[in-house]
């Protein structure tokens, strides 16, 4: 009984170490491939459209409602000690420093990480990735690098859009239903916002883009077992991207941007 228990722990530890090793090797190989020719620019452009342009609606909607509800909640909280005027400042800081990058990251993780894992997973189980190898094409350079670079480039742009739309969401609610003057709302927003507030969010977005693409590619690239395996890869990709986004957000904020 005790031996069985120890064997279970041993198997678990070995399995986990094996997975960490495989992931580290995959990540290192992917990053190295990003700086080595050849570069597949057509694929990069295609991925930029898929990850960036097609994510705009979901990111925009998330941002506008987040900005709007943030304004409502801060107004309720602020009114308890006569500080309603703080609404524009808290909305812009909240959106640019945290909610913009994190919520856009999570939404893109749900949309893009799963799509990448499903696509690469299907390519793996139908031997399309093996076919690439037999056609003298490195799958890391052809499949992984364009997705990682596109996500790292596009996420900050999406977050910038989310920041603007989020602030506008707060602006609309504040001016239309909370009685704020439009001009003074915008003035307060701009007066108390610093460049670092925006840039820290954009740097974090680039890191989240890397995480989203890497996790999608990793789980898809190593998926096996037919449709069930591809389904599992998709789930793992979304869950691991979301958890890593939240964890890295804390680490980046506390170590670099606090």
């Amino acid at each position: 009984m005790q031996l069985n228990f120890l064997a279970i722990i041993g198997r678990f530890a070995l399995g986990m170490l094996g997975e960490i090793g495989r992931f580290s090797r995959f990540a290192a190989k992917s990053v190295l491939s990003c700086v080595q020719a050849p570069f597949f620019l057509r694929n990069l452009l295609q991925q930029t459209m898929t990850i960036g342009y097609y994510s705009l609606p979901v990111v925009g909607l998330t941002a506008v409602f987040t900005g709007a509800v943030l304004a409502l909640q801060i107004y309720i909280g602020g009114s308890r000690f006569n500080a309603e005027s703080i609404v524009p400042t808290i909305v812009v800081l909240g959106i640019t420093r945290e909610l913009g990058p994190v919520l856009a990251g999570l939404m893109v993780a749900g949309r893009v990480s799963s799509a990448i894992a499903a696509e690469l997973g299907t390519m793996r189980v139908t031997e399309q990735i093996d076919a690439l190898t037999t056609l003298s094409t490195n799958p890391y350079k052809y499949l992984i690098v364009p997705r990682i670079l596109a996500a790292v480039i596009v996420l900050p742009l999406l977050v910038l859009v989310a920041d603007i739309i989020g602030v506008m969401g707060g602006f609309l609610v504040s001016t239309q239903s909370l009685g704020f003057n439009g001009g003074s709302y915008l003035k307060n927003t701009l007066d108390f916002m610093e460049a670092d507030d925006v840039s820290s969010g954009l740097w974090k977005a680039a890191a989240f883009g890397f995480i989203i693409a890497l996790m999608g590619c990793y789980h898809g690239f190593f998926s096996r077992g037919g449709a069930q395996g591809v389904g599992a890869a998709t789930t793992y990709a979304v869950v691991s991207s979301a958890v890593l986004i939240l964890a890295s957000n804390y680490l980046l904020t506390s170590l670099v941007f606090s």
Binding site: T122, M123, T126, E127, Q128, D130, A131, T134
Partner: peptide, 10 residues
Amino acid sequence: MLFQGAALFD
């Protein structure tokens, strides 16, 4: 190489 399922790029 001709693969069993052809493995054409979708």
